[in-house]
Amino acid sequence: MSADFLQFLFSGITQGACYALVGLGFSIIYNASQVINFAQGEFVMIAGMAAVALIDAGAPFVLALAAGVALTVVVGVALEKFAIEPARNASVVTLIIITIGASIFLRGAAELLGGRGFRSMPAFSGNEPIVIGGAALLPQSLWVLGVTVVIIFALGRFFNSTMHGKAMLATAYNPVMAQLMGINTRLVLSLSFALAALLGGIAGVLIAPLSLTYSTVGVMLGLKGFCAAILGGLGKPMGAIAGGLLVGVSEAMTAGYLSSAYKDAVAFVIILVVLVVLPGGLFGGRSVERV
């Protein structure tokens, strides 16, 4: 393997892990509510901006990160309470517009409070690259990958062995039945937004040292996370992770070997090609509509 290839692979997987975390958020919320939350990318932005602002204000590093993520979770739950819950049973398009309105609102709030400038966050453990096979790997990338792996396992445990996790799975499978069985589906809804915001927030503080933070950093991230979620088959968490990695690595390879100008188009070309061949995504299967 050439060093170039390895280099592209590293950056692709790092970026892909972020897409995966955002995509997971889409999947979790979709499972609980059939809603596509277009403000998912803004979760990433909020955590990054808040943490940087706190660090600049002199707060201890770890505390700033935790506070950034916590704020994001609060925003996520508030979004569900004040925007999604009052609009239950609205049509798909209406819900899409509500979450887009929320994303504009959050971006506006971020600009108001944090300004429009670009700000950077120091890396968690320095910028001394680790050289593997001739390719440089930033310690921050290892943080991104490590934390993502931990999150994936933690989520697996959460869904399979805790009451709340099982309740969420049951609600995803059949909301009406879940409610009949006494599952508090409203709690599940709040929980799903909290969880999605938590994932977005973690992605936000992880990637901030690599990509700078600014008020619109979440826009493309959100769209590509949506790509990842759809690519893997909406509502399939493992699909979202695979989709995220696929998008990240393809982007890095395209940028490296073909043209960096069209790097941002890669995710969307892939999704179009995949959807034309498999209208339900890679792992969505072909369901037959029942009448």
Partner: peptide
């Protein structure tokens, strides 16, 4: 092909189409 998609998949397909056009015009 795109209008064989339904719901959120159609949203994604058309969104991707628009973004690709926008990127081409930019590049």
């Amino acid at each position: 092909p795109i209008l064989k998609l339904k719901g959120h998949y159609l949203a994604m397909g058309t969104l991707g189409l628009g973004i690709i056009i926008s990127i081409v015009l930019n590049q």
